[in-house]
Write a protein that binds this DNA or RNA. Structure first.
Lengths: 227, 227
DNA sequence: TGACAAATTAACCAAATGGTACATAACTGC
DNA sequence: GCAGTTATGTACCATTTGGTTAATTTGTCA
């Protein structure tokens, strides 16, 4: 009943000639795994599937990442790193606070929109009660940057009297995040239930402007509202 | 090599005496499955695990629901049904529009907060691109109710001149949903990254009031803002 | 009361899935 | 050009997992 195995010559031939490329292999695996995890969740993603879409073999995944959890963890960090890279540019210091806040909200909105895979990973993390998120300094650091950006703007606005003074940077960040995140995370249910109009180019532009205006209006001191 | 099986007497004894209870079994399975799916996702939930937490056996799951997908679908609908039951009470007709809108926003915020399992299922649905959501009339119906509620209030407010007239009920619903949904869906990542303060009783009350105020301010016509 | 349908149990199964053992080719430093 | 280390491919394995088979009990109705 033993299946015939191809003679050694064939085998040797098929595996002969290849170049070593540790970094390439590693990053190739990460890239594939990122989309697979984002697409299917932690338990939904299949190692075999990931391996198949890789230019190498399953063996390499375990060689570099140990096990599925290890791979997932690295994917999370990689995703954060990528997202972070796209966040550097923003320069708001020279703007007056209201305009700076509007820009920040719009930027966040766009930024989330540009990184749906990342959003999906965060969703997945939340479903898993953030078990992995909790242990990443990198990630904590990234979010603190976000907060300080809000804080700088908010301070300036309060000082100059155009912002109300009873809010916290954390709450403002929360609100901006909520509107930007939800836009991506719940896209499917919303468009399935209410049609695509909110997610056309026009619709998105409107939502973006509305979200930003909402935040700015909210933070603006009432006596300033009619200026 | 055949394992000894207990004699028929024992076996007959152990399985003897039970009452039929189709509805009980069915709903028991649904309840267990609801929390399991909400907790672990579609692929993360294990049929064996669900069965174990049930007062019946795995076989019954297949007997009543066909397969895992079938079970999941019914769970989704069941969750919607439950959530919907909690939505009936709200009576806003007698209030003036701004107050009605505030109440609606607060209600939605609370309602989402009270139904975390449901929120989690919607998150899971979105990760799966809403494949199941898409086919449920029940669910579509439920959301249309939500929209019409917003619409009624918004119309009244525009007519009486205290609301601006350049918005759509859909967008307003979207904003209320975003703030309410995010509060539950991203709770873990937020409290892990920024501490529990936003999720203490006080913090939640503040977020709730802020979300509602945000919406009301946004919808209010500017010339009305200082009245 | 007995036959037929519905409900339920216990044991079993094939495929999928995460993970490994082993052999060997490529690279590195001497 | 060779010894030792790193990287890689192939084949394989144990367990988990969704799903099924077959038997048995309970309920129903002519």
């Amino acid at each position: 009943m033993e299946a015939l195995k191809p003679p050694d010559t064939t085998r040797a031939q098929s595996r002969a000639r290849w170049k070593q490329d540790p970094e390439g292999v590693r990053s190739n695996i990460l890239a594939v795994a990122l989309t697979e995890f984002a697409e299917n969740g932690l338990s939904g993603a299949r190692i075999d599937e990931i391996a198949a879409k890789t230019r190498t073999s399953k063996r390499m995944i375990y060689y570099y990442f140990g096990d599925k959890d290890g791979l997932y963890r690295k994917v999370l960090e990689e995703a954060y790193r990528e997202v972070r890279a796209g966040e550097e540019e923003l320069q708001l210091d020279h703007l007056e606070p209201a305009e700076a806040l509007r820009r920040l909200a719009e930027f966040t909105f766009d930024h989330h929109r540009r990184n749906p895979n990342f959003i999906r990973l965060v969703m997945i993390e939340n479903i898993h009660h953030g078990a992995y998120l909790a242990h990443s300094d990198l990630i904590r650091q990234l979010n603190e940057t976000a907060i300080s950006r809000v804080e700088a703007i908010y301070r300036k606005g309060v000082t100059s009297g155009i912002f109300r003074d009873d809010l916290t940077p954390l709450a403002i960040h929360w609100q901006i995040s909520a509107l930007s995140f939800f836009n991506v995370s719940n896209r499917m249910s919303f468009s399935l239930l209410f049609g695509e109009e909110l997610y056309s180019e026009d619709g998105q532009e409107r939502l973006r402007a509305q979200a930003a205006e909402m935040v700015v209006r909210y933070v603006t001191a009432l006596k300033q509202a009619l200026r």
